[in-house]
């Protein structure tokens, strides 16, 4: 499927989701679906750096919280609407991703991961001490109960998150099939070899870190309006970090669909468990699943499907190979 067609397809899925949400009478389901879609964005964003380049980022909460708090602060200061806050949060978090990437780029493996974890702590300390957004006391975010077109505010938020999820998935898929993505995969396999082949390793890693961080920040921007009350402890909840790592790993990290499968599966499961059992078993089950998958299916659900079918290099997914094919065609 070409990128254009995929965008159309993804938009149709988005429209179907939003349309379905209009018919749901119990608002809780829309609330829960928002939660799942938010994880689709976070997992997809994480996978751009963690899956495609192999740099495991434990700083999801930092980016999400920067998006969340920048939106809360700007809303308090200038009363900006969410559609304006989302791109601002994206640019801000993209810049943070770029700087973090630049500072930690010499670190590989577990050292990089520790550095990203440190970023979360730094951001949390900063926000806890930032009075304008309430510090550790927290901040209430006012939202109107009705919005035009969508009716309820929750439906409106759900629409925004659907747009973000579609955008994130389309971006991830386009990266995967571009020479950029091919370069990222080369870095993941062997950084030295990639450099020797002329892959601009530093630049590609920085761009991936910026895109990944930017998407996470965008996912955070509508969150204060979803929660209506934000405070540092729950905004920096470990659940965001653990989930955004676990979802791509469970789904499969080599393709855009992996994080989507993981997010839908684990996200839905967590919502169901919150209602049926208790909210505290959520992470326990995610942890257990992660252990099971690491042992039994290290390549995720995607790996289970692929290993049966057998992998064949495909000009459709390999941009350089595709170029060779088109060149052959045009020269005939």
């Amino acid at each position: 499927m070409s990128n254009g067609r995929f965008i159309l397809f993804a938009c149709l899925v988005g429209v179907a989701l939003v349309a379905a949400s209009m018919f749901v009478t119990n608002e809780y389901y829309v609330f829960a679906a928002y939660f799942v879609l938010q994880y689709v964005v976070l997992a997809t964003a994480w996978n751009i750096l963690g899956g495609y380049v192999g740099y495991v980022n434990f700083g999801t909460t930092a980016f999400l919280a920067i998006g969340l708090y920048s939106a809360a602060a700007l809303n308090k200061w200038l009363d900006l609407p969410i559609p304006a806050l989302i791109p601002i949060a994206g640019v801000l978090c993209g810049a943070v991703g770029l700087v973090m990437g630049y500072l930690t780029i010499r670190l590989r493996g577990v050292y990089f991961t520790i550095a990203t974890l440190a970023l979360s702590v730094v951001v949390q300390t900063f926000i806890t001490n930032w009075d304008y957004v309430g510090g550790s006391r927290g901040l209430y975010v006012m939202r109107p109960s009705e919005v035009p077109v969508f009716g309820s505010y929750v439906a409106y938020l759900f629409f925004l998150m659907t747009v973000l999820a579609v955008a994130a998935v389309v971006t991830a898929r386009a990266i995967e099939r571009s020479t950029f993505g091919f370069g990222l995969a080369a870095i993941r396999d062997d950084e030295t070899a990639a450099a020797a082949s002329g892959v601009p390793v530093l630049r590609l890693k920085l761009v991936a870190a910026a895109i990944s961080g930017g998407l996470m920040g965008m996912a955070g921007a509508p969150l204060p309006f979803y929660l209506t009350y934000v405070e540092p402890t729950s905004s920096f909840s470990l659940a965001y970090t653990v989930n955004s790592v676990a979802m791509p790993l469970v789904g499969g990290t080599t393709s855009w669909i992996g994080p989507v499968i993981g997010a839908v599966l684990l996200g839905t499961m967590q919502q169901a468990m919150t209602v049926l059992i208790s909210s505290s078993v959520n992470l326990l089950v995610v942890g257990l699943l992660l252990v099971i998958f690491v042992i039994a299916a290290p390549n995720g659900i995607l790996g289970l499907i692929r290993s049966k079918g057998g992998k064949k290099p495909d000009p459709e997914t390999n941009p350089l190979a595709a170029m060779l094919v088109t060149e052959k065609r045009s020269s005939q």
């Binding site: 020479t179 091919f182 370069g183 080369a186 396999d189 062997d190 070899a193 990639a194 082949s197 002329g198 892959v199 290099p313 390999n318 350089l320 190979a321 060779l324």
Partner: peptide
């Protein structure tokens, strides 16, 4: 790149 094919390795040389 051991998990890539010969041709894919060559293609990467033309990055």
């Amino acid at each position: 790149f051991p998990r890539l094919t010969v041709e894919e390795n060559l293609l990467l040389g033309a990055y």
